[in-house]
Amino acid sequence: MPGADPSGFISAVLHSGVGRYVCQLQRLTFKFCKESGSSCGVRDFIEHDLMDFARTNPGVVVYLLPVRRDTPTLFAEYLNGREEHMETAGWHREYIIKFVEHLRARSGNEIINFRKYIRTEHPSIQGPWTPFTHQPTEWNLLNFPHAEGLQPIKFEKTATEIVLEMARAQGIRNIVTEAEKLPRESASTQGIGVSAEGVAAVTAGTDAKR
């Protein structure tokens, strides 16, 4: 999409870190003025921190480029061939330390919006999913459509069942249900009459009165 922010996935340059870690910053150039006030922080940095930086990072070549009355600038060159530059006019020493560290720790790739914070070249070690993945092995021997397979997995007591139980507990005998339409009830409702109307119903006391 033209004009959109560059986006992509997280990556390590040349699998850095799988074998050895390689600092991707290869060159750092400080352009500064020896006199002007805007370069004051850079001069402080050079005086106090630069030797430590060079000692701890022997893989980074540091160049000092004194120029007269020009904007002090930090140029960073990375192993992937890209360059970054930052104008450091008016920056104080702590601020330069912070951004030198930022440049050192970068991979040199363009800063992009990560679509995800993880990335893998091997999404699965078990193979692609198919509709038959993790199918129960006992199904191999069944003939489909299988009656047990058509049942819901879990039952809870229905309101009808609760009422029927209560009725039985009270000793009411003439309970009318439709057993054929409720096959799962057939075992428990043996011996109970079947109504012609269809809907399960409890007609407590009415038959007794008749």
Binding site: Q26, R27, P58, G59, V61, F75
Partner: peptide, 18 residues
């Protein structure tokens, strides 16, 4: 370019790779 020193570059090349 003015900021170029071949000896320093070869040293850094080795240091970077250990």
């Amino acid at each position: 370019r003015p900021n170029w020193n071949y000896d320093a570059e070869t040293f850094a090349f080795g240091a970077r790779l250990g």
